[in-house]
């Protein structure tokens, strides 16, 4: 069982930069219905695919500057970063999805 890392504006660069695996970051907020829909799917992903991908989440309410930096204007937005590369995301997925759809979209990262 792998934990979902809670990122902040302060810890973002260090955590993504120091990861040896791709990291999926879930940009979310408490008041967002679709974010609540996708949360359990990400928990399953963290449990089942911890070998190939790390899952993290960032609350946009508390951490607006990271959301702005990556031009996140809609939540949930999922950004996948390659190991150590915080310059730009390798993949951007917008909106809630089911597990099947998500695994398909993440096929290049998830073993």
């Amino acid at each position: 069982m792998a934990d979902i890392v809670k990122l902040t504006d302060q810890t973002f660069d260090e955590t993504i930069g120091g990861s040896d695996k791709p990291v999926l970051v879930d940009f979310w907020a408490e008041w967002c219905g679709p974010c609540k829909m996708i949360a359990p799917v990400l928990e399953e992903l963290a449990d089942e695919h911890s070998e190939s991908i790390a899952i993290a989440k960032l609350n946009v309410d508390d951490n607006p500057s990271t959301a702005m930096r990556y031009n996140v204007m809609s939540i949930p937005t999922l950004l996948v970063f390659k190991p150590g590369d915080t310059a730009a995301e390798a993949k951007r997925l917008v909106g809630a999805k089911g597990k099947g759809q998500l695994l398909q979209d993440l096929a290049e990262f998830v073993a």
Partner: peptide
């Protein structure tokens, strides 16, 4: 531009 300024969910995205 969906998710980058175009939205179908005001309650989700109004904040931005």
């Amino acid at each position: 531009l969906l998710g980058k300024g175009v939205s179908t969910c005001a309650t989700c995205d109004g904040f931005f």
